Simulated scan of single mutants.
Amino acid sequence: MDETIKATFERVFSEVEKAVVGKRRVVERLLVALLSGGHVLIEDFPGMAKTLLASSFAKALDLEFKRVQFTPDLLPSDITGSHVYDMHSSTFRFRRGPIFTNILLADEINRAPPKTQSALLEAMQERQVTVDGVTFALEEPFMVIATLNPIEFEGTYPLPEAQMDRFMLKVRMGYPSKEEEILILRRRLQRGTDKPSIEKVLSKSDVLSMIRKVEEVYVDDAVLSYIAEICRATRSVRDVEVGVSPRGTEALMKASRALAFIRGRDFVLPDDVKEVAVEVLAHRIVLRTESLVRGVSPEDIVRRVLDEVEVPRSVGASR
């Protein structure tokens, strides 16, 4: 594959890191989701620069960005839009909501009640919204980046399982190291403003072209079998009430293809699958109550499965 593609993504990482230090892995996962038609759920504590990360990512790719702050009184129409009466024409016209964008940041999504959270479901899956019986298509590319406060925080609602399953990846940012935190302070002093300057690396047409190229990334039959075995294995673990769905199996394949493309390859390796497996699969697993009491986590289940499923020894690099 052309090395210029790999170099281009390095420039994207560099631009976003002007604003958010030390989060290359998270930026890479955002790219994985965008290039494979998925959505990302970011779970972490307040003040971890989740909003800044999302807006900087959109700027580097020259994509339209909108943010919705989810609150207990947020209505579905506040997201999708609604029909309003135009007194001049004596007709109702549709006023588009913030979901009509390329990258939508659903900030603190678990602070809104389930009815409002579910307003995103159709858009995330079908790339369209229906208001008052009328369907409106969303512009491509379209990706939801939702931020999630840990469930123990007051005033939060759990996300419905159906909505969790529609996020391709769930990632955590984590606290920066001491060196990274010092660098954050130093860069803030140097630029003299809270708003970092992010330069455009790609255009919207470039992104759409790359999305099409990801569909050309080759996946060997041995890798397909490996992906299926991993997902099927989650359904037979004693600690698991509900394992990974077929949607999750497909998401793992799509994420692996996108990661291979970002790394400059036109074929998928088992290592690509292993690298994204926890972030693609763990949030789709429902554990038994007794397993939760024992401190078992969905991430533990995926790692255990990865250790047990045999890795293909020989993988083809072309059709």
Score class of each variant (00 low, 15 high):
Ile5Gly: 13
Lys6Gln: 12
Ala7Leu: 15
Ala7Val: 15
Thr8Leu: 14
Thr8Ala: 12
Arg11Ile: 09
Glu15Asn: 05
Val16Cys: 01
Arg24Trp: 06
Val26Met: 07
Ser36Ala: 11
Ser36Lys: 09
Asp44Cys: 02
Phe45Val: 11
Gly47Ile: 04
Met48Trp: 03
Met48Lys: 07
Lys50Ala: 04
Leu52Ile: 02
Ser55Gln: 04
Arg67Asn: 11
Gln69Asp: 08
Pro72Glu: 07
Asp73Arg: 14
Pro76Met: 11
Ile79Gly: 03
Gly81Trp: 14
Gly81Lys: 14
Asp86Thr: 12
Asp86Cys: 08
Ser89Pro: 15
Ser89Cys: 15
Ser90Pro: 08
Ser90Gly: 11
Phe92Ile: 08
Arg93Glu: 10
Phe100Lys: 10
Asn102Met: 03
Leu104His: 15
Leu105His: 14
Asp107Glu: 00
Lys115Gly: 03
Ser118Tyr: 01
Leu120Thr: 10
Met124Glu: 15
Arg127Lys: 10
Val131Asn: 03
Val131Lys: 02
Val134Lys: 11
Phe136Ala: 01
Leu138Val: 01
Asn149Glu: 00
Asn149Ala: 01
Glu154Leu: 06
Leu159Lys: 08
Ala162Ser: 12
Met164Glu: 03
Arg166Gln: 01
Lys170Asp: 03
Met173Trp: 01
Met173Lys: 04
Pro176Cys: 12
Ser177Tyr: 14
Glu180Ala: 10
Glu180Ile: 15
Glu181Tyr: 13
Arg186Gly: 06
Leu189Pro: 15
Leu189Asn: 14
Arg191Val: 00
Asp194Phe: 09
Ile198Glu: 01
Leu202Ser: 02
Ser203Glu: 10
Lys204Asn: 07
Asp206Gly: 01
Val207Asn: 07
Leu208Cys: 13
Ser209Ala: 14
Glu215Ile: 14
Leu224Asn: 12
Leu224Val: 11
Leu224Ile: 13
Ser225Asp: 13
Ile227Met: 12
Arg238Gly: 02
Gly243Leu: 07
Val244His: 02
Ser245His: 04
Arg247Trp: 00
Arg247Thr: 01
Arg247Phe: 02
Gly248Tyr: 01
Ala251Val: 00
Ala251Leu: 02
Ala251Lys: 00
Leu252Cys: 05
Lys254Ile: 01
Ala255Cys: 11
Arg257Ala: 04
Arg263Ile: 11
Asp266Phe: 10
Val268Ser: 13
Lys274His: 09
Ala277Gln: 09
Glu279Arg: 10
Leu281Phe: 08
Ala282Leu: 09
Ser291Thr: 02
Arg294Gln: 11
Gly295Cys: 05
Gly295Phe: 04
Ser297Val: 02
Ser297Gly: 00
Pro298Ile: 07
Val302Gln: 04
Val302Met: 08
Leu306Thr: 10
Asp307Asn: 13
Arg313Val: 00
Val315Thr: 05
Gly316Asn: 05
